[in-house]
Amino acid sequence: MWTQIFEDAFFSAIAAIGFAAISTPPRNCFAVCALIAATGHSLRFWLMDAQFGAGMHIVPATFAASFVIGCLSVFFSPMTKAPAETCLFPSLLPMIPGIYAYKTFGAMVKFVLSSNSMQSDYYFSQLSSNGFTCMFILICMALGSTLPVFLFGRIAFSATRRKFL
């Protein structure tokens, strides 16, 4: 279990650093992005694990992990002297439901191309199941991560101040 959690944390940290590089953050934010992404993603992994974790569904687990990522980004921002979004957005990216989106797209194409009603029913159920899961994961990610920025606005919006209050 611990090996899996560490593996998950390690790869999500690398993913966060790599995707952060595209949006050019300040140099001192890379390590913080990695730390926050590793914490958030491994928390979601633990929450979803049925055997040793909480056995939660991916949607509420994503919300909880995103909220933690949001809080950590806000509380680390005075240390990095960068806006909270600098570490928040790249840290969230490893949680993007890429495979769900791909399956949704695949089911949509197969649904359109299907020749009989049994096939089309099957692909439509695949399309709606994957599509809704993907959509709710995205909403939870966005909502969970941006809430702390507004809840702790005083910290989030004065992090770049030289004399932080």
Partner: peptide, 16 residues
């Protein structure tokens, strides 16, 4: 940056 993005993609693949 290209190298970092490549590593990120590979890690992403591993996560899935």
């Amino acid at each position: 940056v290209t190298f970092m993005v490549c590593c990120a993609s590979a890690s992403f693949c591993r996560l899935f």
